[in-house]
Design a protein around this nucleic acid. Structure first.
Lengths: 220, 220
DNA sequence: GCATACATTAATGTATACGTTACCGCGTAA
DNA sequence: TTACGCGGTAACGTATACATTAATGTATGC
């Protein structure tokens, strides 16, 4: 009854391998190979691959194997554009929802954690708290489809973050932005929540794009 | 060489049946059933269902069959929110791209067609041209992921349009909006393109939501 | 030497077989 | 009467076998 299917196992394993870099972007992998490696038949592997394809993590190319989707600088820019718009919308909707301070507890905690991590130069911890902030923000927007899309986009970004986290400037301004967004939501000011977050994301995008250009990033 | 796989056939057939209303939202269908109906085995049916599930058109529920996803009024509102943001972004990017009048030919033609259809009270023709306009607009935005997301969202809306097309007010203001967006893009004015289209979509959303409320629409 | 046609082959797409499991109905006991 | 348990069954998840097909290498003709 534990009911954890092989397909789920395959999806989890493949994701893990992709994010960990065991399957490098652009590389091809035969269904049979992966099946053997994960100790199951081709069927669940194929189904898992189809799901991951729908999320843009892999491409099924007949007779050439399952390709781990590469992410170019252009892709990153495209993804950030989408994230910017959708997260800003979520921020606006969250502000409209009229949440109480208690409802916004998770948000506040994430901001506090980011502060704490920055003080200790714990970039990994900061990134985790930053993720938490953005995830909660989207959740508060109460749009299931939007949440889904954002999480798919974020997955694709995640692979690049490992690379860029330690070469990007310290995220100093970032926290002030988060606080401003938080305040706008707490005060129910939708358009300020939207615009503030939009500017925040836009800036992050521009920074990242410049960074990728500078470091000759041409695909991951 | 014919290279049209059964999976593709299944996807196309299922989509067709869903849009045509042969498979009504909320209904369940066993894999075996569908396989027999389409003259193939369960394997391609399952793969097709997985793809359609990723697009939100069906849900795979173990032992209960493949459910045609119902779309509630809330869903419609959520979807329109997403469309509003993403199409507006596309409009802005299109304006930035500096297209020539020739590049915008398709857009202009769609607007002209909408005018012509309205004059003849050809609502179906108008809807088709309207689709064409929005599709081209998104294409000009040059963001492959955005295009994909928008097309998935639009698919979900499409099912409701058949219902609402003939009870909604004549789209009179609509064309003026389209022209304004076109002009902004032609002049390279990104923020005007964005805001104009945003207002256009926002209005369409509000109208639709009001309409669905009024007609006691509680799911399709 | 180069291009083209063909045979080879290996990987996929599809069908099928099978074990597992949740659901449904029936019976029994409280 | 109702709740609970038990067995039958049917649908699914997965493995496997088979058909199909595109890529690769080879031979042949120019």
């Amino acid at each position: 009854m534990g009911a954890i299917s092989n397909v789920e196992r395959a999806v989890a394993a493949l994701r893990q391998m992709i994010f960990a870099g065991d399957l490098t972007p652009g590389s091809d992998h035969l269904e049979t190979e992966l099946a053997e490696k994960l100790g199951m038949s081709r069927t669940p592997i194929r189904e898992a691959a189809l799901m991951l394809q729908a999320q843009g993590l892999v491409e099924l190319r007949p007779r050439r194997g399952i390709r781990i989707s590469p992410v170019s600088a252009q892709d990153m820019s495209d993804i950030y554009d989408i994230l910017t718009e959708l997260e800003s919308l979520a921020a606006a909707r969250a502000a409209e929802a009229g949440y109480s301070a208690a409802d916004l507890e998770t948000l506040a905690a994430a901001i506090a954690d980011m502060d704490a991590c920055l003080k200790q130069d714990d970039l990994r911890g900061w990134a985790e708290a930053d993720d938490r902030f953005h995830r909660e923000l989207v959740r508060l927007g109460r749009n299931a489809r939007l949440s889904m899309i954002v999480s798919v986009m974020r997955d694709q970004v995640r692979r690049a973050r490992a690379t860029t986290l330690f070469i990007r400037p310290r995220p100093a301004q970032s926290n002030a932005d988060h606080r401003a967004v938080y305040d706008a939501i707490a005060q129910g000011d939708a358009s300020r929540a939207h615009d503030t977050h939009h500017a925040h994301r836009r800036q992050a995008r521009d920074m990242l794009v410049a960074l990728l250009d500078k470091h000759q990033f041409h695909g991951l």
